[in-house]
């Protein structure tokens, strides 16, 4: 989940454009991590040292790891450790941005350090990603106007992001939750939740994005925004809401029930109470989720 929030951070700080970020998210699957980015991430080398190594590599015919050791920046053991690093998402995203020239090594190093500092994330947290620090990260990221339902809103959105990674893909950036009272959504699918918490949930996207989202969820090629594509979006919402109800039932012993999903030609958010629009920018387009409690 760090990847997704790191992408948002880069965008909000103006370090990358939305287009560059979408391209890097699409490219990261084919990106190979290089030792320079790994060494910066591990804190073994500074960006300046990595640039010096790259300059030296132009001059001598040696492997980059050997040059790093020869120049005294890292030890052989550290190189071995870097080779064992798992290709975690934020690194692939950073590497894709460095490879395409959008960011320099120095900018990546600075952004990573600032991101960790601003979010109170230690290096250990960064390596050992688990459910607890994912929840912490989500709670820190989303800001809500009214505190009374923060627990449910945070729980809902944490699970949403996990389900997006699980069922759609990790090439997205979550955007800030927007408290909206006067927006009209068109061609969207909604589902009511009732019980311990009464909520309205919605998924909305333009038809081209909806078709791509549906294709990924159904794991098949869908080419038109027809009833079947709508059924796929609708089932994603139902599946996510169902899993949310299971979490609430298991963790709190509170029961939630779901209404069947409904298709809306238009849906005026002013009719809903405390509606938050939560855009999620995938490499193929933006999908809006609405949660109103």
């Amino acid at each position: 989940m760090f990847t997704q929030f790191f992408g948002n951070y880069l965008l909000n700080k103006g370090l990358v454009s939305a287009e560059n970020l979408a391209q890097a998210l699409a490219d990261q699957k084919n990106t190979r991590l290089k030792l320079g980015v790994l060494a910066i991430n591990a804190g073994f080398m500074t960006a300046e040292q990595v640039d010096k190594v790259h300059a030296e590599q132009q001059r001598v015919d040696k492997r980059i790891g050997d040059i790093m050791v020869d120049m005294g920046f890292v030890t052989r053991d550290q190189i071995e450790e870097l080779f064992k690093t798992q290709p975690s998402g934020h690194l692939l995203l950073g590497q894709a941005l460095v490879d395409s020239g959008v960011m320099s090594n120095a900018q990546f190093e600075q952004a990573l350090a600032s991101y960790k500092a601003e979010n109170g994330i230690s290096d250990a947290d960064f390596i050992n990603i688990d459910d607890n620090n994912t929840n912490k990260l989500v709670a820190h990221f989303y800001k809500f106007k009214d505190d009374s339902n923060v627990k449910y809103l945070t729980g809902y959105l944490t699970l949403l992001l996990k389900n997006l990674v699980r069922f759609i893909g990790d090439d997205f950036t979550p955007m800030d939750a927007d408290y909206v009272q006067d927006r009209v959504l068109s061609e969207c699918i909604g589902q009511k939740i009732s019980g311990a918490v009464d909520a309205m949930t919605v998924i909305e996207a333009d038809s081209e994005t909806a078709v791509k989202f549906a294709s990924r969820f159904a794991k098949e090629e869908i080419t038109e925004y027809d009833d079947y594509a709508q059924a796929c979006l609708s089932e994603f919402l139902n599946l996510h809401n169902g899993l949310f109800a299971v979490n609430v039932s298991n963790e709190e012993g509170n029961e939630l029930s779901l209404d069947p999903q409904a298709y809306y030609d238009t849906l005026n958010l002013s009719e809903l109470k405390n509606a938050y629009v939560v855009p999620v920018c995938f490499s193929f387009g933006t999908v809006n989720f609405v949660i109103s409690i």
Partner: peptide, 8 residues
């Protein structure tokens, strides 16, 4: 067969 496998 449901996504809503709550205790209830």
């Amino acid at each position: 067969a449901s996504s809503v496998g709550t205790q209830a």
